[in-house]
């Protein structure tokens, strides 16, 4: 099955909830509201025609234009997109789904955005979601062990966010 067939199946099942993005260049994807993520995930994994049992990658993209010169040309508001790359080892097709999140669920209090964890569907999401949490500051609810994975546990900030500034000092060690 190719991308459009899979997205058609998804759209016939979920209707308007899923949003199709057909890209001219590169991968196309399907956008999913965050509260439907688990449901869609289970459908993608368990539907006998799709069998997307293999989760290749979970990652996020931080859309925040920090360059004031380019700000005029940017069309989007600041947000974070969590990207799931799925594939089926038996039917040999791949699929991409995305979830859009605000950069902060409450910017005043520095509350991180959250979305449901898919680690109950694909065990590999366990570590990959920890990585996304560590580097992008997205919390996954229902994750068995939400800790940092690459950075130390007492690290401040989420390094792959566009507005991240590295610390001057960590535990008495100069970083610059």
């Amino acid at each position: 099955m190719n991308f459009s067939e899979i997205s058609d199946t998804l759209i016939t099942h979920f209707g308007d909830l899923v949003l199709l993005h057909k890209a001219e260049v590169g991968d196309s994807w399907v956008e999913i509201p965050k509260d439907k993520l688990l449901e869609v995930g289970r459908f993608l994994k368990e539907n006998p025609q799709l069998q997307l049992t293999y989760l290749n990658s979970v990652t996020a993209v931080d859309y925040l234009q920090t360059d004031p010169k380019k700000l005029k040309r940017t069309s989007w508001e600041p947000h974070i997109k969590v990207v799931y790359h799925l594939s089926s080892l038996f039917l040999k097709h791949t699929f991409v789904i995305k979830v859009t999140l605000p950069r902060w669920s409450d910017e005043e209090q520095n509350r991180l955005p959250s979305l449901p964890s898919v680690s109950s569907l694909w065990s590999t999401a366990d570590w990959q979601e920890r990585e996304v949490f560590d580097l992008y500051g997205v919390e996954f609810t229902g994750h068995p062990d939400m800790r940092r994975i690459l950075c130390p546990d007492d690290w401040a900030g989420h390094p792959l966010r566009k507005d991240y500034t590295p610390p001057q000092e960590y535990e008495g060690i100069r970083c610059h």
Binding site: A23, E24, V25, G26, D27, N56, S57, V61, V83, H85
Partner: peptide
Amino acid sequence: LPKGEIYLETEAPRGQMGFGLFS
């Protein structure tokens, strides 16, 4: 690079090495 994104996996000796490029 054109505007768009791509994710491609290749068979590296230790497994499937995937690179993603968001442009």
